[in-house]
């Protein structure tokens, strides 16, 4: 029972991480109609900036601020300099340009920081484990990630459902032309939305620093899963991104944790392990296929 609870928490934590990335990606796609492959690069920028500042200053708060600021500013710069020229073009051009950005950012990081992965420590306050129940320790840092992720989800809900900016964002996602016709400065809105998405990617990146490896190319590893989340959740929907992320996180974790044992019940040891590993890798993609079969526009489509 304890083990199951731990695995559920693990799944939730992975889901929350994916949500932070997917929220930005889905907003950018839903509102601006841009496929941004370089979203993973912003995640990397956040991770590198906060790792670098943490090593230089030793302050976790300074590292947090640096990671967020670097990712948001880089995001807005990218929007101003590159993406602005791409809104009217078709998706293939956008994919090509943002793929170019991936190469640009990766090589830029090599020039700035070298090829060696950076070392990041967990902030002192979050080290160690919390005893959730007798015999069930759970790393405090991962609990903090879950908490931050859920807070961000709540904050985004308030921002999008309860504020004027949020109203414009929602309107932009469903009736882009009408918003423009009403005289809203859509260019400013686009820059802000892109900056917000970049900020969230940076947040995910800097939180991932102490757990994952901070290195060039780290963004592409997680980007594919993020796209799966966005597709499952429904493109353009933040609510969908949250549901999709938690679903993907749970399915992925639970399959990896329990499928080998389940298969070992019916098959020989090594074969069961190999097959289970294969099936677990396919799990989230199978989930995506099933969701698309039943609800072709995702769980919570924005342009309903």
């Amino acid at each position: 029972m304890g083990l199951l609870l731990e695995q559920l928490l693990n799944g939730l934590q992975l889901g929350v991480m994916l949500f932070l990335l997917a929220a930005g990606l889905t907003l950018v796609f839903g509102i601006m109609g841009v496929i941004n492959l370089a979203h993973g690069s912003l995640y990397m920028v956040g991770a590198f900036a906060s790792a670098w500042v943490a090593t230089k200053t030793g302050s976790a708060l300074a590292a947090l601020a640096a990671g967020l600021a670097a990712a948001a500013l880089t995001g807005m710069a990218v929007e101003l300099l590159v993406l602005r020229r791409l809104y009217a073009r078709d998706h293939l051009d956008q994919v090509l340009a943002t793929f170019g950005l991936i190469l640009f950012f990766n090589q830029g990081m090599v020039l700035l920081f070298g090829r060696q992965p950076l070392f990041v420590e967990i902030p002192a306050a979050l080290r160690g484990a919390v005893e959730l129940a007798p015999g069930l320790p759970y790393p405090a840092y991962r609990l903090a990630i879950i908490a931050v992720g859920l807070l961000v989800a709540a904050g985004l809900y308030l921002l999008i459902q309860r504020t004027r900016t949020g109203m414009l964002v929602r309107a932009g996602a469903t009736h882009r032309e009408m918003v423009r016709a009403l005289g809203v400065d859509i260019r400013l809105l686009y820059t802000l939305v892109f900056g917000l998405g970049a900020l969230l990617a940076g947040l995910a990146g800097l939180m991932a620093g102490p757990i994952f490896s901070v290195q060039v190319g780290m963004g592409e590893q997680i980007l594919i899963m993020t796209f799966v989340v966005v597709v499952i959740g429904g493109i353009g929907s933040v609510r969908g991104a949250l549901a999709g992320a938690v679903l993907v996180g749970l399915v992925d974790t639970l399959l990896r944790a329990y499928l080998p044992a389940a298969l070992r019940g019916v098959m020989q040891g090594p074969d069961a392990d190999a097959l289970a590993a294969g099936l677990a890798s396919m799990g989230v993609y199978l989930l995506m296929a099933v969701v698309l079969l039943l609800r072709p526009r995702g769980l919570f489509p924005a342009h309903a």
């Binding site: 799944g11 991480m17 590993a277």
Partner: peptide, 21 residues
């Protein structure tokens, strides 16, 4: 225990729990 992970995996929490068990 013999576990095959994914080549694009970044999170190993599920495996950690299996090892502890």
């Amino acid at each position: 225990g013999e576990v095959y992970t994914r080549l694009d995996q970044t999170d190993y929490a599920a495996e950690m729990a299996q090892i502890r068990a």
